[in-house]
Write a protein that binds this DNA or RNA. Structure first.
Lengths: 197, 197
DNA sequence: TCCAAATTAAGACTAGGTACTAATAGTAAT
DNA sequence: ATTACTATTAGTACCTAGTCTTAATTTGGA
């Protein structure tokens, strides 16, 4: 049961890395040594106390939270929406959207803003992008605010709707595209023509 | 300065939601009341003590960690790359990529995978997407693995390179697109023709 | 066997609380 | 004015999971 000091300390380090929320008491039990020994070990290994460990995990992740959240749910903030007609959203380009080398916004974020706006403007339970023809007409830098405007062209042929999206920084057009959207009305699952399988 | 009870409690709730790592002492200072009042408020609002709040943030986020990281850096994992020729990446569609309603992958994730692969395949310091013509040919469901294959068409006319990207689930094509890429060689900042401003 | 390292123990102190009791201030109704 | 009630403040004892320090014990190796 009783390992020697070195062995125990290695294991202790690994244990705490894997389960940072373990008290000295639990660790003492686990290694069949006294609490004091665990504390000496932590001292030697420069491992902070439980509460500090928890705090650092929490604050680390806390800073990532804002980054992690909006990616999936809101790409840009919708400021105007009239279903099946038009929608406007704004997206402030922060450090999480740019290439670190040159602070230029990565294309897929502009696409994501436009695409999610195209999805949002469709007045339907299920709307999916079938195709898109897009142009990036000017680079967007960190700190700039992108305003995307979507207008539903309305001409449904075969259950599809074309949505035009144009994005601007100030008066300059930075992105434009036409999104062809499927909609669930008269939609029957899986593949749906186009050059599918 | 001194708000009434209701007002203070509302503000307290918001404050703690926004900054969970605040002690009762700091809160008491902020609202110019005693620590005991803050504690009564927390009791009434069922807000746990600081250490419990930290712990819940830590454990919550602990589970999200894996989700949070890859979004910005690696959209899909590159498994093969020969610069200026071809590249392959795989992306496993998890719950973070899909609409919660129907578990169908959101378009911008497929786009992001393809786009970042197109950027990666360009043998240059700076590569940016100028335009893209894309098709979503089959929906991708949660749990499926998307393999994206990019081939650089090579025909540089005016410093641009066309990259063809096709994405598959198994043998089925789910996405295809042509990305027209700028490259930094003979690149001179700002707008670069196309129908800019 | 003896020494040094390793371990355990004990005591005083800390932060950030809980739980409980009690006192005080302010307001409204009788 | 007295009572009733709420809101606030104060103080005590206790808790956890530590800290830091000093001291005593155990253990392994030459």
């Amino acid at each position: 049961m009783k390992r020697n000091k070195k062995e125990r300390q290695n294991l202790l380090k690994k244990t705490i890395e894997e389960m940072p929320f373990t008290t000295d008491e639990e660790l003492a039990g686990k290694f069949s040594v006294s609490i004091q020994t665990i504390r000496l070990d932590r001292m030697e290994l420069s491992i902070p106390e439980l509460r500090e460990r928890i705090k650092s995990v929490a604050t680390h992740q806390w800073n990532e939270t804002v980054k992690a959240l909006p990616i999936d749910e809101i790409i840009g903030q919708v400021v105007d929406l009239e279903l099946d007609k038009r929608a406007i959203s704004i997206l402030d380009i922060g450090p999480e959207h740019v290439f670190s080398r040159n602070r230029i916004a990565r294309g897929h974020h502009l696409f994501a803003q436009a695409n999610s706006l195209a999805v949002a403007v469709i007045d339907d339970e299920l709307a999916l992008t079938a195709r898109a023809d897009i142009k990036f007409t000017r680079q967007v830098k960190q700190g700039e605010r992108v305003v995307a405007k979507a207008t539903a062209a309305g001409n449904d042929r075969k259950g599809r709707t074309a949505v035009e999206v144009e994005s601007f920084v100030g008066t300059e057009k930075v992105f434009s595209g036409v999104f062809t959207m499927f909609r669930s009305t008269d939609y029957k699952g899986e593949s749906s023509n186009e050059n599918s399988d």
